[in-house]
Design a binder for these strands. Structure first.
Lengths: 202, 202
DNA sequence: TTGCACTTCGGTACCTGTTCGGATTATCGT
DNA sequence: ACGATAATCCGAACAGGTACCGAAGTGCAA
């Protein structure tokens, strides 16, 4: 049940008053706040709000207005689960339309996003383990220290930390003491995106 | 039921207006936005949108347009963010109605769930770091090896791995080489829930 | 029982949506 | 290519709500 402009104003006055004082305003206070000279006007508005289900009222009770909590629409986005990525392994073929729902707080500004499943333990020291899902923001470039999805020679995708060194040399640093960093020239690498979030299910 | 170009334009105007103002636009506002000189045009478009099931309208009611929730509603749940938990620290007071949206794949069967923010590095060896969000399934008991939110002596909540040893003795194992396990009797501990998921934002 | 706070009643101006007849321009099946 | 159907638009008359008022009524509690 949608509200009119006035009704929305009144409702927001009710919520802010109730939130600030711990109890609902009286009819007279509402009338004052909106410049009404008749309480009948207040009564009518409240009746309409009640009819539309935004508040509940108890008959003839002073300050007997209760705001019905509006059910919040969960803000989330379905992102495609494009495949798996591991040290030295290519991104597997697109899985048949699988998706993962991700809180929208994970999406980073513009650009498209997708989800990959991490295979292997090359990033354990960055607290990413085998089987974790990483949310990737699609990009062609990265800043130092960011975690990137990088493709080498066009056929081998990995997740690594990105460090630009001198003369166009790039260091791809695994986060696992047992593994060595990879050094490549910037022409031999293509950044697929950067990791902006991690999800893990037990 | 597909929409025409014009209908889609109108529908997107409706959603953005409604989202921004908290109430639907009036016919006149719609007419202004699209340069119509007759409200009958607006009326007809809205009738078509209603016939195709994209909006609902109440007869003769001011701003009585309701947008029907779109096709693929992302499957997610808003869980309350109850506070922080750290080694040896109590769960902080309930934060004022903060929530975090979580993919519904994270919820475990029955029982209520909530979210806590992890403070400290007691679980780094389990790939949980300072600042991560853990999804907790509310429970009174746990199985060996599960990660639990445990409260000791009624005032100190921690996240640890749970191991039941003999004679009712419980070992709460941190996942950090630098920290020692805690041994308690099962009577001195209350399980708050078990960790079923981890979320991290970079 | 007295007063305060909410309720009901009648009434008005205006705003907003509805309906109808009509016209032009796509769109689509045959 | 053709005719039917739907979409897009207009203007004007109509109908019903919204937003307000003042005054009298009612229920509850001090």
């Amino acid at each position: 049940m949608p509200l009119t402009k006035r009704q929305r104003e009144i409702l927001s006055y009710l919520t802010s008053y109730t939130e600030g004082n711990g109890y609902a305003p009286s009819f007279e206070e509402i009338a004052d706040a909106f410049g009404y000279t008749s309480l009948a006007t207040v009564h009518e508005h409240l009746s309409n709000l009640q009819r539309k289900g935004y508040i509940k009222r108890s008959y003839n009770e002073s300050r007997g207005i209760e705001i019905v909590p509006t059910e919040v629409t969960p803000r989330a986005i379905e992102l495609p689960l494009l495949g798996s990525v591991a040290a030295g392994m290519p991104i597997e073929a697109v899985m048949h339309g699988e998706t993962l729902t991700v809180p929208d707080a994970f999406i980073r500004g513009s650009g498209s996003h997708y989800v990959l499943r991490v295979r292997g333990n090359s990033m354990v020291d960055e607290q990413i383990r085998d089987g974790d899902f990483v949310v990737v923001n699609e990009r062609q470039s990265a800043d130092n220290g960011e975690m990137v999805i990088a493709m080498l020679n066009g056929d081998s995708a990995t997740v690594k930390k990105y460090y630009r060194e001198r003369d166009g040399r790039i260091r791809l640093q695994p986060a696992n003491e047992a593994l060595q960093p990879i050094y490549v020239h910037e022409n031999d690498i293509s950044i697929q995106g950067i990791v902006v979030g991690v999800l893990r299910r037990y």
